[in-house]
Amino acid sequence: MLSCEQATRLTSERQERSLTLRENTELKMHLFICSGCREFGRQMDALRSLIRRQPGDKPPED
């Protein structure tokens, strides 16, 4: 079973690369029982979408 440290590492790397089938399975099993790591994942998604969806207008092509 993954530790929370390993699970957060995989959650972070999921934003960088495709996880292997095995990594994915282990992460899902961990998240099933760990609310802290589920929350970590939600917060990572929230951070990325907040940063990348800044308010205002699209810049011109230049």
Partner: peptide, 13 residues
């Protein structure tokens, strides 16, 4: 053991 400390475990934002 690599598990969250009690006061560092993420809680909902």
């Amino acid at each position: 053991n690599g598990h969250w400390q009690q006061d560092t475990q993420p809680r909902s934002w």
